[in-house]
């Protein structure tokens, strides 16, 4: 079956065909939800962010330039909407507080933590330790599989900045990972 490309679908939406709007966004619906989810750490809040994102996409669709990547454009709007949301809800402070308490609890008794919680939650804890920008870079690059160049386009920053944040993010993840998943436990599991 012949599939219309993003540019053609954008044209159709701008001509008033609302059905094309859903078709246009369908391939990215999971990606933007997960992007917002990793950033907010709450599924309901992520859906709220996505709602806001979709309203913005529909409203400002005429600003999208033909020939550019539509995927990058909507991720950019998603990231910015998430930042707005976090700012509004004063999430930054909440996250910092949560990170402090989490890091403290992990530091206190890492082996006990390992026994009581699932590995999944501990890796999630690794992500919580990242700052908003580091997290955005990490999720885009390692979670969603964007290249460094695409990530820099989405976040509106240089490739150097992306690499710097990515480096810090991976360092923090490794450090945290080693605290909650010590070498001796890893060896036993192997």
């Amino acid at each position: 079956m012949w599939m219309k490309n993003d540019d053609e679908l954008v044209e159709e939406v701008l001509r008033g065909d609302d059905v094309s709007f859903e078709i246009l966004l369908r391939p990215y619906r999971q990606g933007i939800l997960n992007m917002a989810y990793r950033m907010t750490e709450n599924l309901e809040e992520a859906k709220e962010v996505c709602q806001d994102t979709l309203i913005k996409i529909y409203k400002y669709l005429y600003k999208f330039k033909k020939g550019e990547s539509f995927q990058n454009w909507i991720y950019k709007i998603t990231v910015n909407s998430t930042y707005d949301f976090l700012r509004k809800k004063k999430k930054y402070e909440e996250i910092v507080e949560r990170q402090k308490s989490l890091a403290a609890s992990i530091n206190q008794d890492p082996e006990k933590q390992l026994l009581n919680k699932e590995i999944k939650n501990k890796i999630k804890a690794c992500l919580q330790n990242l700052g908003p920008k580091e997290k955005a870079v990490f999720i885009l690059r390692d979670g969603e599989g964007f290249s460094i160049k695409e990530t820099s386009e989405i976040l509106g920053c240089s490739s150097v900045s992306v690499r710097t944040n990515l480096l810090r993010a991976r360092q923090k993840i490794k450090t945290q990972f080693e605290k909650i998943y010590p070498v001796e436990v890893r060896d036993v599991k192997r």
Binding site: I123, C126, D142, G143, R170, I173, K174, F177, E178, R186
Partner: peptide
């Protein structure tokens, strides 16, 4: 290992 596990989880 740490990156692989995190990616796998994601």
């Amino acid at each position: 290992l740490s990156l692989g596990k995190t990616k796998e989880w994601l």
